[in-house]
Design a protein around this nucleic acid. Structure first.
Length: 786
DNA sequence: GCGCCCCTCATACCC
DNA sequence: ACGGGTATGAGGGGCGCG
């Protein structure tokens, strides 16, 4: 029989040296099913050395069979390697776990240049070769078998054919479960070897909400949690920081209490897998913390901040209980209910985030081909790479090995000097997907690069400006083919969106976002020394063409009489003139073969002397603030708020004097302690371990105090600190914000090193000085403006 | 011993 | 563990001054 199958998770088991693939998913009738496939054999390639006779080499390899008993087959095949037609020897192997070892062994033979693709894991191999995609539909010929594993599914099938992907956009009705835990420690970071879990809050997308609270026994809490999961039988389990926090904690506690955390569909415990994600067999475990990176606007990546940013319904009267306060709330019977409410709301926030980004996560998994639970933890480079590996396989291209290389920097984009001051009516023109289009236009790709020692091919070459690298014009290279199809796919999706609504629209939108993310990441990937397809001239030539493009654009604009006030990488800012802009856009299309589009028009815009920092007023009254303190996470809110207000007054009311008055008021408010304490917190990231710092810095000293108090800190943690009064350097005066009070605050620091620099960055453009802002709030002498 | 200059380290931003 | 280009503050050493 034939079934429809939507793929959720994949794993494999070895049974007496024979592997079986286990596909977990949902069929066309919403049954949860397990499909077992015993017919897939893994393999690797051997590439012969230049000038070696393939027949002879084949015999040499075959002679090794007795030493490598689990080899199944050795044959020669035609492939391409960096675009060049290549004969390779394909070695299939009964036990996929021996692939690396066997490839290693055979690579040592004389005549073998190298092994290839032995680092593709068995389950990945299965997905790639069958073009099987996570979160996508397939057809499989199957036969129902007994559920001998006791798996938690409606049906178990044995595959009679390999799966075939089919076009079908709908999602099955998924069961989603979210959870969060609260741990109790008397002081400092809770440690799973020592401190219990006291609360677990769960919620489902069917509207159920439960809370398991430790009254007398933690065992009961864990048992109830396990029971709830098994009963609800979720397809997707969501949480926040669960990969590094909740799951390892739960596992350690369960072990300690003699419990087994059997929450997967195979009657086993969750386990840590590739890229540091926790795998729950048969389900997809998704940790939204892994997606928080994608939202640069969220500076401190707490659950609350992410939920806020994503517009998750604001919870009324929310009391945030900070880690440091948990013991106090737990111990006090009157305050405990607040902690319980906080925990329940955390889980609600998680469910809110799920509605906001799970569609995207599923489309990303589907596009790049990484299982849903991997795709979040995989870094951008690996997401792009998996997409490329799949495309390469379709094109008969061999996947290069990942190799270590030394790092040498290369030249990137140009940034134009801004014209300082205020400008009226400034239009921003952007090149659409500049780097991808440059690569397509010039056929820039690892497989089209012509080494200087090679002769020019008959089809001719494109020569990059400045750097002189050459790329054959024909045939279309790997990147050109991949990028063109991505750009086309996005266009098609956007077209379809125009006639769609509801769920269809949501899926299409999530999909076009995923396509955009991968397209935009492709240039960064090609310049990454860790990339399998890294060829430095590819990245260098791309940026060289980019520089030529933007500089040519400036030239053309000036020839047309457009005043260019700024530009960065793929954009120019010009005094608005619709006619001339239209003409410019036409000329660029004709002369450069690229598309430039008016992105927006600022009614007024202010530049300082610095690049990459400006603020513009949009027609709808909103401010676009770029690069300035307002958008930086490492300035106290008090400084950011003042600067934002200054910009607003300057841009909307054209009144630096009024801004100055506002700043003076703010300074006086601070002196009177009228500014909330949390507005004084400065956040900075720990980018290395505490011992590795060469100089003493405020956030590092604050971090040391936290460590001393029993808080465990890890790389990438954001340290919130305030500056207190006292002698010595700044770093000596920095204290974690929860270890100081308002009375400790060094008000003068906040005035002279936070408020004043932020305000003067803007007001300095209008000859306003520190003295003007420090004068008493009464009536300042600003006669010079009158 | 102090202030000033200049360089380096550290972080976070822009595209 | 995707790229390079840029701004900025604080630390810290060197130097001249008195």
């Amino acid at each position: 029989m034939k079934i429809l199958f939507w793929l959720l998770d994949i794993n494999y088991e070895l049974i007496n040296d024979t592997p079986e693939i286990r596909l977990w998913g949902i069929d066309g009738e919403e049954n949860r099913v397990l499909v077992i496939d015993r017919n897939f054999t893994s393999y690797f390639y051997l590439i012969p050395q230049e000038g070696v006779d393939l027949k002879t080499l084949l015999d040499t390899v075959k002679a090794q069979r007795s030493k490598l008993p689990l080899i199944r087959d050795i044959e020669t095949v035609d492939r391409r390697y960096f675009g060049k037609p290549t004969k390779a020897i394909k070695v299939t192997c009964k036990n996929p776990d021996l692939i690396s070892k066997y490839a290693n062994e055979l690579s040592k033979l004389g005549g073998v240049k190298s092994g290839l693709e032995e680092d593709v894991r068995y389950s990945s191999r299965y997905l790639v070769d069958n073009e099987m995609v996570p979160c996508g539909w397939h057809q499989i010929e199957v036969e129902e078998i007994k559920n001998e594993l006791g798996a938690q599914v409606d049906k178990v099938y044995l595959a009679k054919s390999f799966p075939k992907p089919i076009e079908k956009n709908e999602l099955p009705k998924l069961r989603i479960l979210g959870f969060s835990i609260v741990c109790y420690s008397k002081s400092g970071t809770s440690k799973p070897e020592r401190d219990p879990i006291v609360v677990i809050s769960v919620a489902t997308n069917k509207g159920e909400e439960k809370q398991f609270v430790s009254v007398d026994s933690e065992v009961k809490v864990l048992e109830a949690f396990i029971k709830f999961i098994v009963k609800f039988d979720p397809d997707i389990i969501v949480g926040y920081a669960t990969n590094r926090q909740d799951w390892p904690y739960l596992l350690t506690r369960a072990k300690k209490l003699g419990l087994s955390l059997k929450v997967d569909r195979a009657k086993a415990e969750p386990h840590t897998s590739l890229y540091g994600h926790v795998s729950v067999t048969g389900r997809a475990n998704v940790d939204f913390y892994d997606f928080a990176e994608d939202f640069a606007e969220v500076k401190v990546k707490t659950l609350e901040n992410l939920a806020d940013f994503l517009g998750v319904k604001k919870l009324m009267d929310r009391t945030i209980v900070e880690d440091i306060e948990i013991p106090a709330y737990w111990e006090d019977p009157k305050k405990r209910s607040i902690l319980l409410k906080y925990s329940a709301e955390n889980t609600q926030s998680i469910m809110g985030i799920a509605s906001a980004i799970l569609d995207f996560a599923m489309q990303l998994a589907n596009l790049v081909g990484l299982p849903l639970d991997h795709v979040g933890t995989a870094a951008v480079g690996f997401r792009v790479e998996w997409y490329l590996i799949r495309q390469a396989h379709k094109l008969g291209e061999l996947t290069p090995k990942r190799i270590e290389r030394p790092y040498f920097p290369y030249a990137g984009a140009v940034v134009l000097e801004p014209k300082p001051g205020i400008h009226e009516e400034v239009a921003v023109l952007d090149f659409k997907a500049m780097y991808p289009n440059i690569m397509i236009m010039n056929n820039v790709s690892p497989d089209t690069y012509i080494d200087p020692r090679e002769p020019t091919p008959p089809s001719g070459v494109n020569v990059a400006p400045e750097v002189g690298y050459k790329f054959r014009k024909e045939p279309p290279g790997f990147y050109k083919r991949v990028l063109s199809s991505l750009i086309k796919a996005r266009g098609d999706l956007q077209k379809k969106m125009k006639t769609s609504s509801g769920m269809d629209y949501r899926i299409l939108d999530a999909r076009q976002k995923a396509v955009k993310v991968i397209t935009n990441a492709s240039y960064g990937y090609c310049g990454w020394i860790g990339a399998r397809w890294y060829i430095k001239p590819v990245a260098e030539a791309t940026t060289a063409w980019g520089r030529a493009t933007i500089l040519n654009t400036v030239k053309l604009a000036r020839q047309l009489g457009l005043e260019v006030v700024y530009g960065d990488t793929d954009s120019i800012f010009v005094k608005h003139d619709q006619k001339k802009i239209k003409e410019l856009s036409k000329q660029i299309g004709e002369e450069l073969g690229l598309e430039i589009k008016p992105d927006k028009v600022y009614m007024r815009i202010i530049f300082t002397e610095a690049k990459k920092r400006y603020a513009g007023l949009l027609p709808d009254g909103r401010l676009d603030i770029v690069g300035l303190e307002v958008v930086r996470g490492d300035w106290a809110a008090i400084a950011k708020n003042v600067q934002e207000k200054v910009l607003e007054i300057v841009l909307k009311e054209n009144s630096p004097e009024k801004s100055a008055t506002y700043v003076r008021q703010c300074i006086s408010d601070l002196r009177n302690k009228q500014v909330p304490y949390r507005d004084l917190i400065i956040w900075k990231t720990l980018t290395k371990s505490l011992e590795e710092y060469e100089v003493r810095a405020p956030h590092v000293e604050a971090a040391k105090l936290l460590t001393k108090a029993g808080w465990e800190l890890t790389l990438g943690d954001k340290i919130g600190f305030v500056i207190t009064t006292g002698p010595g350097k700044l770093y000596a005066k920095a204290k974690p914000y929860m270890m100081a009070t308002y009375d400790d605050i060094d008000v003068d620091y906040y005035i002279s090193n936070q408020i004043l620099p932020a305000a003067l960055r803007i007001l300095g453009m209008f000859q306003i000085t520190e003295g003007d802002l420090m004068e008493k709030a009464s009536q300042p002498s600003l006669a010079k403006f009158l």
